[in-house]
Design a binder for these strands. Sequence first.
DNA 1: GTCTATATACTGATAGAC
DNA 2: GTCTATCAGTATATAGAC
Lengths: 202, 202
Amino acid sequence: MTTTSRKPRGEYAKTRTRRREILEAAVEVFSSSGFHKGSLRDVAERVGLSQPGLLHHFPSKEILLEAVLTWRDDQSRVLLGDPFPGGIDLLRGMVELARYNQGTPELVELHVMLSAEGTSHDHPLHQYFVDRYAEVFAMIDTAFRDAEAAGELKPGVECGSAARTLIALMDGLQVQWLLHREGVDMAGDLARYLQSILTVDL
Amino acid sequence: MTTTSRKPRGEYAKTRTRRREILEAAVEVFSSSGFHKGSLRDVAERVGLSQPGLLHHFPSKEILLEAVLTWRDDQSRVLLGDPFPGGIDLLRGMVELARYNQGTPELVELHVMLSAEGTSHDHPLHQYFVDRYAEVFAMIDTAFRDAEAAGELKPGVECGSAARTLIALMDGLQVQWLLHREGVDMAGDLARYLQSILTVDL
DNA sequence: GTCTATATACTGATAGAC
DNA sequence: GTCTATCAGTATATAGAC
């Protein structure tokens, strides 16, 4: 969906480099302005390209945004490790992810901006976000169930509710952190919540 | 800042009605499109007015948005009661607020949309959101401290962290709820979290 | 692969008649 | 108080030269 690099040799290295440059610039622009306000000209200028020049690599704004999102998802996947951890290791991974996010305000802005826009039913990426949240929920819900089976979850804690709560916490803390960077410790608050419902140390 | 109704009599009833109509329409438009993408023409059409006709009542787009936000704040204030409750009563009020929100998807969308946009440093309402979050934090932090003093808070719970967590939970659950309305019980999850750190029943 | 030029559409805001 | 007409700015996307 994103690269479709059919050519086998390294002949198109320049193109691949260009695409990566554009992708990085697009992250910056969509992060601070959102999808709607962020303009292709802005993105093009940052890589020293005209706007039609950019459209040669990504034929429409929406396609560019999709590429940005799959790139972002890949980043998270790399950070969490492959194959995905399960159970309490995944929960630890989420805290790590939050700690990593504290070093990349740009990615945090991108996520906050786009997931807000994505709630609109007529947004081009609405379905993407609906599906993505369902996936993330399933992943974390499973992790809690595994922890429960291993006796690592305090009795009385409902897995589904805990999964929703954890996700909400990650999203909500990001908004606060963007507004008050000094006063908010995302990873710390996340760890405190998890610790409060677990029977073992994180 | 919003009405400045200097005229004493009811002579301007029609104007006041118009302004309220416009405000409601603006909530709808800014809710689903955000501030940047939502257009004044959209708002004007919904009340059967031309776009310059609308600008007679609110001389600029930004002023209209400010009016929408103060209106929204007034709504919350009415719902929480005046004067504001403190301690555990405020925490109960937050759960009630979440329950109320589950009946007004439009207001939830407005909040999610605009607080995401507001994180951008160059957004016209950035400072508004910075200040507002600081206010809300102070309010809830105080409520937790009061609860702690009354022995209603479990030992080991840090008030500031709990306040940030509660706010993040409210914000984050709204995003999930907009994406998966059936599967998310905002008030329920909120109550479960609060109950887990309190020594008394909510 | 990148450009210039352009088509088309929409934006917020203003001028001025009624 | 509301309108029409309009301005100046910006957007995405396309056509076609090089």
